[in-house]
Amino acid sequence: MRPWRVAQAAALGTSHLADSVPCQDSHLVDFVVAGERAKWLLVAVADGAGSASLSHLGSRIACTTAILHLKSNADALANVETAGECVRQCFAAALREVEDLAKREGASVREFATTLQVAAIGDRHSVFGQVGDGAIIWGEPGELRVAHWPDQAALNLTDFITSAPLSETLHIAIAPSTIRRVACMTDGLAPLLLDFRTKGPHGPAFERLFATCTAAPDPSDLSEDLAKFLDSPQVNHRTDDDKTLVLAVRNEEDAA
């Protein structure tokens, strides 16, 4: 059986719908398989800048490049000593790819501005990397936390991989144990799912979402059901930005 149940979906913000702006969020989920088992769950989520005309491309390329880099460097990921640097390098690779694309298109790299968050979840340790807003939530049922809380001065002043050296904007965190819950989300969902006072995940919402992943009789329905949820009036009433959510729950048999 697959070791993870994954729900992944994105929905266009209602304000973008009104202005005919494409969804600027991107996400990608992949696995590194060794033998019969998936050894690594890899998640990338990116939010293209609202003010940049080609940021929907920037976010897509950032996600695919980051995941590709991690897949080709699974050995570095497997060693807890080198895993952090491996994730750092996947951000550098994503930035290079965006810069190359900008050059080829003859456009300013700023037009491709995007945030990027990456989660690499292994059996014994996991690594998280983040530039800009949005959040990676991880932990155990009842004990969820954010990998990094973006302490930005103002909401419209987030970092992008293109906006400053990665040494200033990239936050890496390592969880040195087996984790059974992980979620990646863009900031469009922050008002609903994060608690701004405690600067952490809003527990009740995530517990419910993860419980739904566990409860689904057929996990292959999850992404479609999550997409419906993200585009529901209940959610759109609370945010009109693009929103992306990836939820992953480790199958209990696998964790044992």
């Binding site: 729900a7 008002p191 609903l192 799912l193 006072r197 919402a205 059901d225 999550l226 609370r238």
Partner: peptide, 11 residues
């Protein structure tokens, strides 16, 4: 996926 009104963050 269903989240009740009470389960959403109240920011």
């Amino acid at each position: 996926f269903k989240v009740t009104e009470q389960e959403f963050a109240d920011n």
